[in-house]
Every structure is written in C-alpha cells, then in structure tokens.
Amino acid sequence: MSHDRNDRLNYALIAVEGVDGSGKSTLARGLVDALSAGDGALLARPCREMIGVFRALVERSDDESVFYQDVVPGDLRHSLYVLEGLLQFRYQGPLFEQYDAVVFDRWFHTSAVYCGSVIDDRAWYARLADVIPRPDVLFWLRVDPDLACRRLMERGDRWTRVYSEAGLREKIERLCAGYEREMRGTGAVVLDASAEPGEVLARATAVLAERGLLVPALSESQ
C-alpha cells in the first residue's frame, strides 16, 4: 500500500512496533505528549476487543499460568485481528478525525510475529489487510533479547512469573527473530531500544519534524 492511500485521512497516523520489553509503549506515550499541540494526539491500540474476548474465554484470575495465546490457534487470532482492524478504522474513524495525530501502540506486524501466518483463505485476508491504512511513520524499536528480558524481569511482567528464565529468553529470542523477518522491507524507522527513553523519543520526534508531522510551534520549541 503506498503512502498516497492515506490522503483520505485528516490526521497523521503513527505506529510503534517492537517486542515486549523494547520500550514501545513508553515511546508511544511520549509521542502522544510531544504531539499535544493543536488538536492533540490520541493513543490507540489495535485488536483490543478480540484480545479481551480471548482473555475472557480462556484465562482465569486464579491461574496466571494460562495464556490465551497458548490456547487459541495463532492463525485464528491473526485472521480475527485483521477483521477487527478494518472495523476499528470504520467505526472509530470519527473519533480519530478529532485529532491531529493518532499514535498506535503496536501495529499489525505484531499479529504476524506473535500469531504466525493466516492459513485458510490467506489471499482473501491479505486483500482485507491491504484496505487498512498504512502509518505515515512506522517506528520499530529494535532490541537485544537480553535487554528485553532484563526489562521484563525488572518490572515483574506476568511472563516472568510463569516462564523460567531460560524459557523467557527462548520466547523473546523467537519473537525478536520474528520481527527481524517481518519488518524487512516495511520502510520502518529503526530505533535503538538500548538508548535512554529520552534519547529514543528525541530521535523519533526529530523524524516526525523532518516529515512535517509536528506542528510548527512544537518543532520550533525543540
């Protein structure tokens, strides 16, 4: 999908991708704050409704070891995330239009990395996915698996309470390898996740300013 497919959007569409522990959510929140001039920016996430459904169906409050990702087949999750993505832009479009920018914490590359490929009717789902607008800027926080694991352990992430240290590292290594594969050729702006959060945010906002996606007043103040 080429950039001109976004000409129908009246707001800047920005997405941040990366494995758990890469600092992705921190950057997304920082970008929303940086874009707060004018009509402001909205923080959004893809596929939240279906994730909530899967959790309600599979997970239990008294057993943290059960993850919906380990029960619901990955190709089913991926296909339903594509459908939700279409509906999200269809029905939340009026909300998005109220802002100068919408910043997504994750994008649909996450589905490919965490769920694998759609198996049945792959070509049909690919056509549906192509209707979803592409971000004006897609940031990818590239992180070393050791650093991602250390950050998850420091914040007491649920994964660290279920997986052994070796199991967590194997999972993060696999996901990082998936991002290396999926982000190839996407045109994503690669950011070094090992840098301090402020440095990462400064680099990201500089990219937005270069592309004319920061309002002039904010660009001049930096």
Results as ranks from 00 to 15, higher is better:
Y114K: 04
Y114N: 00
C115D: 08
C115R: 08
G116S: 02
G116V: 04
V118T: 09
V118R: 05
V118K: 10
V118P: 01
I119N: 15
I119F: 14
D120A: 13
D120M: 07
D120E: 13
D120S: 15
D120V: 00
D121K: 10
D121V: 01
D121F: 13
D121Y: 07
D121Q: 06
R122L: 14
R122F: 12
R122T: 14
A123F: 09
A123Q: 14
A123V: 15
W124N: 13
W124R: 13
Y125N: 04
Y125W: 04
Y125G: 00
Y125A: 03
A126S: 05
A126P: 12
A126W: 08
A126C: 11
A126T: 14
R127F: 06
R127P: 06
R127I: 12
L128W: 02
L128N: 00
L128R: 07
L128S: 01
L128I: 00
A129R: 03
A129P: 00
D130C: 09
D130Y: 12
D130H: 06
D130E: 13
V131K: 06
V131N: 02
I132C: 07
I132L: 07
P133H: 11
P133T: 08
P135Y: 07
P135S: 07
P135V: 12
D136V: 12
D136L: 11
D136E: 13
D136C: 12
D136P: 02
V137H: 03
V137R: 08
V137D: 00
L138G: 05
L138S: 04
L138N: 02
L138V: 14
F139M: 05
W140H: 01
L141E: 03
L141I: 02
L141F: 00
L141R: 01
R142A: 13
V143Y: 06
V143T: 12
V143R: 03
V143K: 01
V143W: 06
D144N: 15
D144K: 01
D144G: 11
P145M: 09
D146N: 11
D146S: 15
D146Y: 09
D146P: 02
D146M: 13
L147M: 14
L147Y: 06
A148D: 05
C149S: 08
C149N: 03
R150L: 04
R151Q: 14
R151D: 11
L152N: 02
E154Y: 00
E154W: 01
R155T: 06
R155D: 09
R155C: 08
G156D: 06
G156V: 03
G156L: 06
G156Y: 04
G156C: 07
G156A: 03
D157W: 07
D157A: 15
D157L: 10
R158D: 08
R158M: 05
R158K: 08
W159S: 14
W159D: 09
T160D: 04
T160K: 01
R161T: 00
R161S: 01
R161E: 05
R161C: 02
R161P: 01
V162C: 01
Y163C: 11
Y163G: 05
Y163H: 11
S164R: 10
S164P: 10
S164C: 04
S164M: 04
S164G: 11
S164I: 09
E165S: 13
E165L: 08
E165V: 09
E165N: 10
E165P: 10
A166Q: 13
A166F: 08
A166E: 15
G167M: 09
G167E: 05
G167D: 10
G167Q: 10
G167N: 07
G167K: 10
G167A: 04
L168R: 03
L168E: 06
